[in-house]
Amino acid sequence: MERQESQPAAGGARVAGAGKYLTFRLGEEEYGLEILKVRELIGLMEITPVPMTPEYIRGVINLRGKVIPVVDLRLKFGLQPTPDNDRKTIIVVDVKKPKGLVQMGVLVDLVSEVAFIAADDIEAPPSFGDDYATSFILGMGKSKGVLKVLLDIDVVLGSSDVISAAVHAPAQPNANAAASSLQ
């Protein structure tokens, strides 16, 4: 059985390895998360907003007695907010923080499938020049003819690049630009 951890590349940022990815949709785009990072999927439930936090932090939920934050990935990537619906899902992931693994929820539009992506079907993250950091992208994976952006969730939920993109320039976000221009 093939099950490879993504390996650190020379530059420090990790690159995608062959393996299973949980794929999901944000708007028109397909994204992938390393399956080993995923703890569980839960349907959209009522989320308690936490005031005085960035907009992309939807709030906190009660996950069987544990309080975990939920990040709206749409807002995080600077996409237009959409009304909540039944297809939206919270993916509970383990995120590496300086203090250790932390559980966080990631709100996405629709969970698609678990796909195995072979090494041949993975390309290195694209480069858009120095202005656009793409360290939160592990690579571009192809599965059933569809290109998926494989995310490094540790970077997405921890990096200042993506956050500043979403907070300071919501009109022209990096992630969105990166994702759509690849299509």
Binding site: T53, P69, G100
Partner: peptide, 19 residues
């Protein structure tokens, strides 16, 4: 009292969450 978790960093205004 449940901690809001390291996921949010530390938030001054709230001591935690209550179920």
């Amino acid at each position: 009292v449940k901690t809001l978790g390291d996921g949010l960093g530390c938030i001054d205004a709230f001591a935690g969450g209550a179920i």
